[in-house]
Design a protein around this nucleic acid. Sequence first.
RNA 1: GGAGAGGUGGCAGAGUGGUCUAUUGCGCGGGUUUGCUAAACCCGUGAGUCUUAACGGGCUCCGCAGGUUCAAAUCCUGUCCUCUCCGCCA
Length: 431
Amino acid sequence: MLDRKFIIDNIDAVKLNCERRFVEADVARFVTLENERKNLQQELEQLQAETNSIAKQIAKAADNNERESKKELGRKIREKSDSIRSKLESLETEIDSVQRTIPNMTHPDAPIGSDDHSNKPIANGKTSLPTYDFKPLDHVELGEYLDLIDFESGARVAGAGFYFLKNDAVLLELALQQYAVEILIDAGFTPTTTPDLARNSILQGTGYIPRGNETQIYSIDGTDLSLVATAEIPLGGLLTNQTVDVEQLPLRYCGISHCFRTEAGAAGRASRGLYRVHQFTKVEMFAFTLPEQSESIHQEMLQLECKIFDGLGIPYQVVDTATGDLGGPAFRKFDLEAWMPGRGIKGEYGEVTSTSNCTDYQARRLNARYKIKGEKGTKFLHTLNGTAIAISRALIAIMELYQKEDKSIEIPKALQKYIGKEIITANNKNK
RNA sequence: GGAGAGGUGGCAGAGUGGUCUAUUGCGCGGGUUUGCUAAACCCGUGAGUCUUAACGGGCUCCGCAGGUUCAAAUCCUGUCCUCUCCGCCA
C-alpha cells in the first residue's frame, strides 16, 4: 500500500494515477477519514498522557482520600479514552479498506491504456517464429496422443482444471525446474522450496485477498491458512516484520512451489488445456532491494527470463504492461509472451512470465525494512518478483513448438541432458 | 495429538502490579589518559509515530491479540513460536 502521508501530500498525483490505471478508489474519502483519524489519535494520546500522570500521582499519594479521588478521576479519563479508542478502531478499519483499493504509483514510461490491448511490445526473443509444412496440433491433442497429460482423470479426482502429467511430461517438468534453478543459482539467487500454504496475513501483505468474492485464493476451512497462488507469497513473507542490514542487500531468492488458483470468473475465456488451470508448478524469482536498486534488478529479472526462454529455443515477445493491466502492487511490469502454434486459429502469443517491480508497496504492508548502519531509523525495502518458469505454460510452448508431423515432440537441447533422450514418441512411453 | 518449560533491546540475562527513566554485563559509538596498540576510566548507545524551524516534548512497543486495573513486562484469556518428553508417522 501507499504511505498515508504520501497520499495526503500528493492527492492530485494519486488521483491521476488511479484514473490512468482505471481503478476506482475514493481518494477524497481516504483523505477525510485519515485527517479525522489523526485528530482523534492526538486526542487519545493526550488522554493517555493524563492517565500516566495520574497513575504516578496515585502511587505517591499522601493519603487514602487523595488516592480515591484520583482514582475516580482516572476512571473518568478511561471512559473517555475507551470511547475514542472504539471510534478509532472502526475508523481504522474503514481507512484500511479504502487505502487498500489505492494502487501503487506507476512508472512514468509504462504505456497508458485500459487493458492488455495497450500493452506495448518492446523486444523479441532470439528464436524466430516457426513455419510448418503440416497443420500443427495444440498441446491437448499432442498430450493425449503421446499420453503426456490426462485431463479426464484430473477432473475425476479434483474437478475441471486439474490434470495428471504423465510419462515424459513429468520428466519435462523436473528438467524445466532444474534448468531454471541452475540459471538462477548462477545469477546469485538463493534457491528455496517454499511452503505451499501461507497465513492469510502474509497473503494480504503481498497484496492477495483471501475469501473475497472473486478471490483467486483457495482457503483452508477452519484455519487462517490459504494455498499459495505463487511462491511470491511465501518469499515475500520471508522478511515480514524483519529489518535487514543494508550490507546484505540486494537479497535474491528463487522459490519452487505449487501454485493454486480458483480462476473465479475466468470461465469461458480462452483457456483450453494447460493454459488456465487450478494447480501448476512454478519457479519464481524474488528480490528485496534498496530503493535505488529496484529498477536495475527489475531489468536483471527480465533478462533472466529472456535467457531462460532463449535457451529453450522458444520465440517470444516482451511487453511493457499498460497501466490498466497492472496489478495493484506493481509499479511496472514486463511480460514474456511465448509463441504457441496451437493457440487460436493459426498460433498466438500467450503469457508465460511476468516480472513486477512493486517498489515499497508490498514491503509497507509486510513491514519489511532495512537499516543503514550509523543512521537513525529504518526504511522500507523494495520488492520485486518474476516468473522464472511456470511449468504448465512452458509445457504448452514446448510441446506445440517442438512437434513434428508424426506427432512426436523433440526435446529442447537444453533439457536433453536432464531427460536422457532427444525425442518423445508414442511408442517410447515410460511405463 | 498429549504433558511440561520458555519467548524481555544487537547478544546474554534480571525484573512477578506503582517507589528513578526496563537492573546489569557484553558488544557498538564518542572521549580522557597514552611512543603505538591494549588496558583503565568517563559519556552515549533500540524501533515506530505525533509535535517542533530546531533544541526538546508526547504516545506506543517486553512474541502477537484481547481483558482486569487509576496503573500491566508483571495478573487473566486466547493465539503463535521455540525447547524437552510421550504418542503417531514418510
